[in-house]
Amino acid sequence: MHVSDGILSGPVMAVGFAGAVVVAAATLRKMDLEEIPKISVATSVFFVASLIHIPVGPSSVHLLLNGLVGIILGWRAFPAILLGIILQAILFGHGGVTVIGVNTVMLGGGALFAYGIWQLRHRFNFKNNQMVFGFLGGASATIFSGVILSLALITTGEAFFATAGLILAYHIPVMLIEGVVAAACVNFLLKAKPEILAGHIPIAGNSSS
């Protein structure tokens, strides 16, 4: 789900880089020393998890999990995804060095979007609301990324209109998979280590660090 080198036009790549730098600078503000290793861990877990393949019919897709990064790291998800994209580009050519900016805006933006959706769970109180918002977070991050990718292709040239549409359609099954995996993971973390989740409010008397 990354764009490769060589497709997008110069202005689109430049806008991608500018957007990535601005948002990364904004989301990295007031960073604690303690957070550096934490963000790195989350980044590496997601890097590793993106190597997991899930069968879909005759083929398979690999997990993106950018929504889950947002659910866990909150604002810091954006720099985390930036790191993941840089490493994927230089370690094995996934994506590419000239599209680090566009890919970061696409996946990192999705992560921030998922965080926004995830935080809404405090407003709605019903049974299993955390799982439902976990699903919505995971799924909406994928859709957000798909839309950004299509926009990047469309602004590159008329020749890419149809490709952009097909790519958007491809995101629909991926969205469902991402949503279910995110919901299951949120459900697990709520039982095992709820303080990992972003914006977690500990229940009184059940203090956690």
Binding site: P55, L63, L65, L68, A184, C185, F188, A192, I196
Partner: peptide, 24 residues
């Protein structure tokens, strides 16, 4: 390609996260 696999994969990622955070 079924729901059960997706749930297991979610738990798998969760376990990986918990273990990694504690190690870090």
């Amino acid at each position: 390609a079924n729901m059960y696999t997706l749930k297991v994969m979610g738990n798998f990622v969760g376990t990986l996260l918990v273990r990694s955070f504690e190690r870090t």
